[in-house]
């Protein structure tokens, strides 16, 4: 079984985000970019499936700017076999919407015929939490989102999901889309020799036109602003003072 993992290049989660002065978006010029943390978890899971002999090949795909190559090379260095870059824009500030990403991924799925697609639960830039579900809909496949455990048994995937009240376990028919949550695994670091080896692994370059997909956005950004800031309050010296403040000043207890 082939496993497909879509990986997104996003602002590194440690970087302090700055809104551009003209309100058009977030400043992404010259900031550190990394693989979306959820996608690292998805790549790790795919590699583990291969190590267990369940997956035969791990293919990673990224949609965005040419620099997303670096993200794909990271995935190859972790252990993926092959990469596909769909260059959909030349501008680092243009983000491709989940619906368009899902349509492109559906095109990749038709070509590659994977038995399983492992997506991140959400991209930490736009926090839309949508792409996997949309891809699943377009393919008419089953979906299991927010996975914290995954077990493949024949043509079914048993997935434990993180839901609002706790955990839910479902069994989905393969082929399926699984979106991964934080506690599925701890991704490995790529070793130096593997980083070197990754440079020689195949990376195919494509465009949206190859899949006949129109990536024109459905949402337009009217403006982007910084949220209202919160000011630091006061330090209290003791529990007695804290309780007094909460009772008398804030009136919240």
């Amino acid at each position: 079984m082939k496993v497909l993992v879509p990986v997104k290049r996003v602002i590194d989660y440690n970087v302090k985000v700055r809104v551009k002065a003209d309100g058009s978006g977030v400043d992404l010029a010259n900031v550190k970019m990394s693989m979306n943390p959820f996608d690292e978890i998805a790549v790790e899971e795919a590699i583990r499936l291969k190590e267990k002999g369940i997956a035969t090949e791990v293919v990673v795909v990224s949609i965005g700017v040419k620099q997303a190559q670096e993200t794909l090379r990271t995935a190859l260095a972790m252990g993926a076999d092959r990469a596909i870059l769909i260059e959909a824009t030349a501008d680092v500030h243009t983000d491709i919407e989940p619906l368009a990403v899902a349509k492109l991924l559906a095109g990749v799925v038709k070509e590659e015929a994977p038995g399983l697609v492992l997506c991140g639960k959400q991209a930490i830039d736009n926090d839309m939490n949508a792409t996997g579900q949309m891809l699943s809909a377009l393919l008419g496949w089953s979906q299991a989102t927010f996975a914290s455990e995954l077990a493949i048994e024949g043509d079914t995937a048993k997935v434990t999901r993180e839901v609002d009240g706790g955990l839910q376990t479902i069994a989905v028919k393969m082929p399926a889309i699984v979106t991964v949550d934080l506690r599925l695994n701890e991704p490995r670091y790529a070793s130096l020799p593997n980083i070197m080896k990754a440079k020689a692994k195949p990376l195919a370059a494509k465009t949206p036109a190859d899949y006949g997909v129109d990536v024109a956005p459905r949402l337009s950004v009217v403006k982007t602003v910084e949220p209202a800031g919160r000011k630091a309050g006061v330090k209290v010296g003791s529990i007695d003072e804290l309780i007094a403040k909460l009772k008398d000043e804030a009136g919240v207890i």
Partner: peptide, 9 residues
């Protein structure tokens, strides 16, 4: 967006 570091309309 961005963990609440920006609000987009």
């Amino acid at each position: 967006i961005y963990a609440g570091n920006a609000i987009q309309t």
